[in-house]
Design a protein around this nucleic acid. Sequence first.
DNA 1: GAGATATTGAACTATTTAGTTCTTTATCAG
DNA 2: CTGATAAAGAACTAAATAGTTCAATATCTC
Lengths: 184, 184
Amino acid sequence: MGRPKNFSREEVLEKAMPVFWKHGFADTSLQELERATGVNKSGLYGEFRDKEDLFVACLRHYLESQEKRGFLTREPFGWKNVETFLKNGPLNKGEQQGCFSVNSMREFAILPNEAYEVVAENRALLQRLLAMNIEAEEPKMAPSAIAELVLSFFSGLCIERNLKSGKTSSTRKIENFMAALRSL
Amino acid sequence: MGRPKNFSREEVLEKAMPVFWKHGFADTSLQELERATGVNKSGLYGEFRDKEDLFVACLRHYLESQEKRGFLTREPFGWKNVETFLKNGPLNKGEQQGCFSVNSMREFAILPNEAYEVVAENRALLQRLLAMNIEAEEPKMAPSAIAELVLSFFSGLCIERNLKSGKTSSTRKIENFMAALRSL
DNA sequence: GAGATATTGAACTATTTAGTTCTTTATCAG
DNA sequence: CTGATAAAGAACTAAATAGTTCAATATCTC
């Protein structure tokens, strides 16, 4: 055996993610990634093929951690879960504003195909989970159609986090949206 | 008098805009801007202070051209205008996907303050125009609250244009959303 | 403790970046 | 035609970029 490395893949992802989250792919330099992770280039390149590879790994890590929060899989299924998803999905802790996944959509033009696939797949999953919760409420409109509306509204909320605006106003907006949904 | 320049500010903005629109600020190089506009660096720097200045000018130019389309000021005011706004606001011609303004929101962290102000001001305007149209329908919920919902949904539609998905599905989604609004 | 081994850190490379400067060239007024 | 003027083109600069290489170093097994 040789010298053990003094960082774990997990740790690196956890620290690199907020940087990509805030600055996106193009505007994040390797220097910033070194500083944020405390791992220098040769360490990073030992673990990841290149900057793109690290980015996609961060994206995957983010989506997994979001899935673990499980807003849409709590029993009983219903509007309450949808509301929690909208209220707590887009984060707001310091640098990490909105949703990393939604933010990334803006950069598909320069991101590897894999990034697109990861995001698209996750959205399909969300769509199914939303529909499942909505179906439990037996609305008149097709659950999958309502789920689409929720996902678009969610995406809008996420990018709007880039604007300065109070948390209370966002909460009120979500409650109004939920009121509209419940009448469907 | 000296030699007359063979490009107009307008022309440059018109040609530079789609580049920024698609690639954002960070990932657009001066080389690309030279190629797209047909004006070389000294020409560009003669007309604009720097890359940031050119970007903000493009943003302003975009918002003005969108205002001119006047979806929300056509008489009679009402849901019909809101629907037209949602259906035709986010563009889809070739490179120009979604809304340049919404796309830019993702990059506020690295954009000059001016960009933020221009976008925020335009959103405030949209908010007022939407509320005006909604008020004409005399809904039970406060018009400005509904206008907020529309603007968030609109923002969501815009970034979702970065995903491949048919125009028909988007149209259907908007119609479902409008159905929900009309019941408010 | 010795030797094998894998990580680490730093120096290095080649390219690209935004931005500047200076020479060449085109067009106008007289 | 001439001289003034201003734009255009290209060469240049300094800094930053992603990615590579290699010697120094730390830790494990035996």
